[in-house]
Design a protein around this nucleic acid. Sequence first.
DNA 1: GAAGATTGACAATTCAATCTTT
DNA 2: AAAGATTGAATTGTCAATCTTC
Lengths: 170, 170
Amino acid sequence: MARGRNGDAPGAGASDAGWLTDDEQAAWRGFLRMHSQLTSSLNRQLSSDSDLSLQDYGLLVMLEEHGGGPMRPFELGRVLGLEKSRLSHHIGRLVDRGFVDRSKCPTDQRGWLIRITDTGREALTAAAPGHVAAVRRAFIDRLTSEQLSVLRDIAAVVADGRRSDEDCDG
Amino acid sequence: MARGRNGDAPGAGASDAGWLTDDEQAAWRGFLRMHSQLTSSLNRQLSSDSDLSLQDYGLLVMLEEHGGGPMRPFELGRVLGLEKSRLSHHIGRLVDRGFVDRSKCPTDQRGWLIRITDTGREALTAAAPGHVAAVRRAFIDRLTSEQLSVLRDIAAVVADGRRSDEDCDG
DNA sequence: GAAGATTGACAATTCAATCTTT
DNA sequence: AAAGATTGAATTGTCAATCTTC
């Protein structure tokens, strides 16, 4: 059961109002454990083979993919699942390091436009092959395409609030 | 493609040696985004409704489930997917707050035994119903049991190094 | 007032170095 | 030398408060 207390419901596996079944628990804890391990290991690889952390990489990739055009912080927050305060500090550090620049948004005076710099692009280009290979080794290559597809759906439902019967354009 | 650069391979979706296909990328990024969102939200719930963070909760649950008996830090690190330094700092804080105690291991002089205290157990008991409900709402209840089962397998392969054809006792 | 974003104080995490026992 | 664990300094993340514009 999810709370982790033994003693009640010795049979195990049953869904008793409050706690999680063994299967539910295994999924939830496995998810957490997998994330901790993967990110530690990928972070180590990235920072030893390049100038970027995993967070740096994620942010720069989004900017780069955006066609080189600028993005608003709230957009970045949405795609990366990050909150505004953390993002703001992170962007500040990337600005200091010269990887992105920040300019006032002309159409909405409250906001900013974040753009990847040439320096940022270079760092990304240098980091990418090693990082992608590491993601493959630690994650992609260990799973079937069926498993990856289910994981994609899971993320769509949990993170993006899609209902399970929606398709990609829904 | 995983690196996030457009321009090469306009067709998309193809597996070209280095990068990730769109499907692979969607799974990987979705996983990261889902984790960020879930843990932020569960952390907020836990720390506003109880004395524990998500990390505190995970650690205390493991100790409690261990039948009230003590665990070695390296065992905790293994089940939670955490590294020794982080774990050591975390245990130190929990000791200071009176939630666990730490005593020298009699059979291996290098090691320690960590045990949940009554205070820790009380905090866990108080936090559990709200946290479990939050995990259900944000995660479990949004997924089918089939999806949960696939996720459990994914974690077993990625985090615990099981091969996909192994069963649970393998 | 709500949305977009920043700031500073505080808390948690990482990295490298260290220590002891095996 | 390797395994178990801790420590301190530096980095990174969180929370609440704030500011400006919509």
